[in-house]
Simulated assay, not measured.
Amino acid sequence: MDFSSYFPIWNKLTPTQQQILERNAVLRKVDKGTVIHNGTVECTGLLLVRSGQLRAYILSDEGREISLYRLFDRDICLFSASCMMNSIQFEITIEAQKDTTMWVISADTYQRIMKESAVVANFTNEIMATRFSEVMWLMEQIMWKSFDKRLAEFLLEECSLEETNILKITHETIAGHMGTAREVVTRMLRYFQNEGMVRLARGTVEVTDKIKLEQLQND
């Protein structure tokens, strides 16, 4: 399938705009673990995921990570083109969580079309609003929700995404997603194991009682 079938508002663009986008959209394949964008990169450009999974996260001065959101097939990443938006002051890192194929559109190209098309400008604002809503939701979770509930929710979400109850994931990786220390994750997972909700092995977390996790999440 080509670029036009993945770009959400393709049919609302003029033929000239369509031609500019198609000509400038570069299909790129990256391996799992590849850092696509970070604070040291001046401006990667707009990313449109064809297949795979990307993770957007921020990094503290102490080196602690916290995931902001993830991107899947047909999702668009604007923060990687943050040079278009002078109000964006924080540094964000985009990493491939799975082998990923995506289109990269230069910030200059997208900005040119956005300036002349109200449809593209509105679409861009909607994406930004959605992403900021996700970040605000995350902040609320961190501030007001206990860690055991957050971890239960994370494990259930991972099972749904990976379509398996046996998650090949380390405590360090979970800590990176959740913005906490590995020791905190290990302690809580051991508690979950004692309660019969998970089974731990090296490099894996097996969810053994989804109902208990769901009850914990919703209490």
Score class of each variant (00 low, 15 high):
163 E>P: 02
131 R>W: 14
139 M>Q: 04
140 E>D: 11
130 T>E: 12
155 L>G: 09
144 W>L: 15
149 K>F: 13
130 T>K: 15
150 R>Y: 03
151 L>T: 01
130 T>N: 10
170 T>D: 09
167 L>M: 13
161 L>C: 06
134 E>N: 12
144 W>S: 10
138 L>E: 00
155 L>R: 06
138 L>K: 05
154 F>Q: 01
158 E>I: 04
158 E>W: 07
138 L>P: 08
139 M>R: 03
166 I>S: 03
148 D>P: 08
161 L>G: 05
134 E>S: 13
159 C>R: 00
154 F>Y: 09
141 Q>D: 04
142 I>E: 00
131 R>I: 15
166 I>C: 07
167 L>E: 04
142 I>S: 04
165 N>D: 11
135 V>S: 04
165 N>E: 08
155 L>V: 07
166 I>L: 09
163 E>A: 10
149 K>W: 12
160 S>Y: 07
134 E>C: 12
148 D>K: 08
167 L>C: 08
163 E>K: 15
167 L>W: 10
154 F>E: 03
136 M>D: 07
153 E>G: 15
166 I>V: 09
160 S>E: 05
158 E>H: 08
158 E>V: 04
134 E>F: 12
163 E>I: 06
161 L>M: 09
130 T>W: 09
157 E>Y: 12
140 E>Y: 13
132 F>P: 01
131 R>Q: 14
159 C>A: 06
133 S>R: 06
135 V>I: 15
140 E>H: 14
150 R>Q: 11
133 S>G: 00
142 I>H: 04
135 V>D: 01
168 K>W: 05
156 L>E: 02
160 S>T: 03
162 E>L: 15
170 T>V: 09
149 K>H: 12
170 T>S: 15
169 I>H: 11
136 M>Q: 08
154 F>W: 07
170 T>P: 14
149 K>A: 13
170 T>Y: 07
143 M>F: 01
166 I>T: 04
167 L>S: 06
153 E>N: 12
135 V>F: 06
132 F>Y: 07
169 I>C: 13
138 L>Q: 03
162 E>Q: 08
165 N>Q: 12
140 E>V: 07
147 F>W: 10
153 E>C: 14
162 E>C: 06
137 W>T: 06
131 R>P: 12
133 S>H: 01
131 R>V: 15
152 A>K: 06
130 T>F: 11
137 W>R: 09
136 M>N: 08
140 E>P: 10
138 L>I: 02
162 E>S: 01
151 L>K: 03
137 W>N: 03
133 S>W: 05
143 M>T: 00
130 T>R: 13
149 K>Y: 11
141 Q>C: 02
137 W>V: 02
155 L>Q: 05
165 N>V: 14
133 S>P: 02
160 S>M: 09
155 L>F: 12
135 V>A: 06
139 M>Y: 05
165 N>R: 12
158 E>S: 09
150 R>N: 06
138 L>D: 00
170 T>M: 08
161 L>R: 11
